[in-house]
Each structure stands twice: as C-alpha cells, then as structure tokens.
Amino acid sequence: MIVKDLRLATQVSELVGRFPRAWQDYQDWLRDIVGSRPVLSARYPSWQAAIIFRWRLFYFVSYVAVVVFLKQCGKKLESLTTIDYRYILQRTATLLAVAALTLCGIAATTGILIAFYYQPAAMRAHESLTAIAHDISSGSVILSLHHVAGNGLIVVSLIQLVVMFLGREFLCSWFTGWISGICLTLAAMGLSWTAIVLSWDQTSFWRFKIELSIVGSIPLIGGALREILSGGSGINSVTLQHMYALHSYVLAIAAIFLSVLHLGALILQEQHWKAAQQRFNLSKLSERFLRKSL
C-alpha cells in the first residue's frame, strides 16, 4: 500500500513540476505530506491511512491547480487591459469607418441610379418610384439597397461614436475623427429625414406634416425654418424639390466628404501604434518617388 502511495506522490510531483513557479512555492507542502505518511500508518489502520494520504495529495493538487489557473487568468486579463484593449478599439473604429465609407458609396451609387428615373414632383414622385420598383430591371434591388445602406449608415455611425468614446485619446487625429464622426451621424440622420417625403405616399406625407409642425414649434426661428424647409406654408412640389436638393446634393455630398475625412483621420491615428520607421510619412514617400523617377 505504502509503495503505491509513494508512486502516486511521485506522479503528483511530476505533474506539479511542470509549473516551475507553483512547484517553487508549494513543494514543501508535498514533502511534508510524504514525510507524514509513516506517522499516519502508525496511528491509523492501513486503509484509513491510505485514504487520508490520498485526500491530502488530492487537495494539494487541486489547490495548486486553482492557483496556477487563477494566475494564468490574471496574466491574460492584465495583457488585455494594458495594450490590447485599446488597440482592439482602435482597429474596430477603423473597420467601422471603412464600413461607413462603403455604405456611403453604395448609397451614392444606388442614389444616382434611382435619380435616372425619379421625378421630384408632387404628382409624379410616387408613380416614378413604383415604376422603378416594377418596370426597371433590378429596380427593386437598387431601391432596397439604397434603403439598407442609408439605415446601415446611421447604425454604423452611432456604434462608431461609442467605440471612439471608449478608445478616446486626446490627439489631433482622434479629435478630427470624433468631430467628423458626429457630423457624419447627423448627416446620416438628416439624409433619412429628408428622404421621408420623397416617396410621396400617405404615411410619408402625414409624417412629414407632423414633423414640420414640430420644427415650427421651435421658439423664434421655428416659423422661418419651417417655411425655408417646405418652401412655403403647405407641402407641395416645391417642398419635394427642396427635400430632393437637400437629400441628393447637400447632405449626400457632405456625408461622402465626412466619411472620407473620418476614415483618413482614423488611419492617421493608427500610425501611433506603429514603430517610428513604419509610420506613414509624406516627405519620405515623395523622396522615394523622386528618387525612382530620377
């Protein structure tokens, strides 16, 4: 029995020996467990002594295993919190900026395709959209792509604001990215708002009427703003043309410009993570170009 127990103890020591730090800390425990084995045999019947001995060995192994496990977890967590977590946020922000630019591109392309057939006039708008959806080849795909890209842009830019807030760093490039991100979010919302009346059906008409009256209730400037937006007191062809111009010229161009600026700022921001010689450097690049051309 004792020989068997000692063999077990040898196996335990080999197991714990694989973790040098834990072995350094706790080997005297194992030594005393083995050292007290003769005392156990003298005091208890052999079967009881074996049970006590094995229980001590088992507890020793479990305790050391938990200590090793917790230490490993702590180390992982520490490495996550120091550098990786901010780096992950930085990469996520850049990826989201790429996604926003892609969505802008999709919305712009499909928007231009829609503009080939869309007619911004009160009696023609709804008809032309129906025609695009039904008569033009892959018209419904283009329309729904335009919707998905527009809504997706709002979602992505809102998530981006949260990500950038968590990974905030008070550098010029971050600040540019942050401000352009906020403006991009506002532009995306503005695009979706000006698109309400463009489909010219019952829901959009009445919704726009309510929202115009909300705009009108802003103190001091409300009335004037409402007239500027709707091009008069009622909602008619002029309103539609105003919204169309805002949607497809002012806000769309602003959104594309902002998303390019946003991505550019974040790419510049990423340079801080790179080693000095790997960073993007305009003068170095032009120097190399000049050397090549000469």
């Binding site: 080997q27 005297d28 083995v34």
Partner: peptide, 30 residues
C-alpha cells in the same frame, strides 16, 4: 500551507530553503 503562503505574501513570515536533501520520491525540498 495556504495560510503560510498568505502570511508570506503579507510580509509576516519569510521562507528559506532547508539544508536537508530533497525527498527521494518526489524531489521536494523542505
């Protein structure tokens, strides 16, 4: 032993290796 480790971490005790030979089966030192 867990308590000894805790006391050592708090700085209440100091551990040092004994001069005895390592235990023959496990190689553990005192």
């Amino acid at each position: 032993y867990p308590n000894l480790k805790k006391l050592e971490k708090k700085g209440f005790v100091k551990a040092e290796w004994g001069n005895e030979l390592p235990e023959e089966h496990t190689g553990a030192r005192r």
